[in-house]
Design a protein around this nucleic acid. Sequence first.
RNA 1: GGCGAUAUGGUGUAACUGGUUAACACGUCGCCCUCUCAAGGCGAAGAGUUCGGGUUCGAGCCCCGAUAUCGCUACCA
Length: 508
Amino acid sequence: MSIENTAPAPDARPIRVRIAPSPTGDPHVGTGYIGLLNYLYAAQRGGTFVLRIEDTDRTRYVSTSEQMIFDALKWIGLSWQEGPDVGGPYGPYRQSERTEIYREYCQQLLASGNAYRSFETEEELDAMREQQKAAKQPPRYNGAARHLTQQQIDAYIAEGRPYTVRLKVPQEGSTTFKDELRGDITFDHTNVDDQVLLKSDGFPTYHLANVVDDHLMHITDVIRAEEWISSTPKHVLLYKAFGWELPRFWHMPLLRNADKSKISKRKNPVSLNFYRDSGYLPQAMLNFLGLMGGGMAQPTEAEIVSKGLNTKEGDIFSLDEMKAKFDFKRISLGGPVFDLVKLKWLNGEYIRKLSPEQFFAALRNNIFSDAYLKAVAPLVQARVETLGQFGDLADFLFRDNVLPPESVWAPKKRTAEETLAFAADLLITLEAADWTHEAIEADMKKLGEEKQWSVKENFMLLRAIVTGSTTSPPLVDSLLIFGKARTIDRVRRFIETQKRLAVQASRK
RNA sequence: GGCGAUAUGGUGUAACUGGUUAACACGUCGCCCUCUCAAGGCGAAGAGUUCGGGUUCGAGCCCCGAUAUCGCUACCA
């Protein structure tokens, strides 16, 4: 038997789309990208754009993240009609506040025989996967708990054993769904795992929460990244199990690093905060995101001639122009490289278009804001004898990049390799750190102890990397002001540069 | 490994329902402008469309088969 679901008929439901970021850290450029696409889709069709916070993973939850996501999306110029901050008729819009709902629907699935309880521990599951891998089998839940008798289940529950609830995927047949950009995609059920729907902590997984919420919030079009294609059959099966009407699915190409892998903070600045703090203009960022994957028709030759356009104008467009012209069917499916060089060019175009007043205002609102200068000033005051020395001491806080002195990456006591390795550890530590004075200092010292780097060596290396000098205002205070996203970028760039130099040297 | 998706210069895209020497932008290089650097102007190099078959008068567009890349393969999203 085959569960057929090709081409959900065009329906008369009012268009509703959503973006569903997880508050796990800095706001991601990918969130901006998918956010823009959803925004455009709704705007072009008189639809509604919903923002929903998917905070069901309590282990990765970052409390400051949600507000940063709101701010970043607003920064690039997006707005939403429903969300945790603005409310709406289908709230709450934070999944952590909807756990009762998911539990109810999970109950329903259990009752209808579309899901079952599973009592294995994580260790048992790991062991099972290991075995399967060793036997060259695809790692998948073996379905053992499907065969538990009601008595056993009752007994386990009475014992207070923790359990998860899993989707009962049919053992035969296949699921086909339509991707609006790619056409029909089929998955054989033997390749679909019995996905956990409800975790043992009582929180739902993405799959359950997402489907339930999309239904309850009347979402008509699911516009999300390509990485979700593989789990779409699970979602379709859930819709079927509940007897709900399917949304349309649009899977967008994944933004890539220069090496074509999925964009990652390892290889690229991915935080929208980084771009904001580094002095990228929001309209340039938005324009650049709109360029990714195509979607905007190039001006025709006739247009270029009649409007006297420069050909490069085809790459430059505003949100309003996107609303007017962006065509989802034009999106090209190869994953676009997030090319910082082109972004910088675009930003330059926008900066040059600013009037002198606007340029001045941009400087004052961004890298020379009162708030920023007010934070920097006290670090410098005790260390200068003339105001002019401010620049000598604080220049690193206003620059795009900085060149760490050679004495640092080739220090007396350490080899270049050791220094590089430690810098890499520093990077990981800083990425994971809460951006508070206490946390940064404690985490750095802990790392130093583990790696046998003295506090002096440790802090001096980071100081040199971030400030480009071995003399600077207090390091941690400076980092706090400079911001996490930019700090991390500097460390990352230092490591990359040194690696490249090492390769060049070894070739000689 | 399994499953799925994708494939046009270094990068992002274009090429109407198959129809001239594959276009535009970024980047690179050169020249002009210029006190410098950008910007701007002019020009150049760089792909024969991943590869191999096929259909066709004609294929980047259609078919078949390879290959490569990416994603998923979690009680993460």
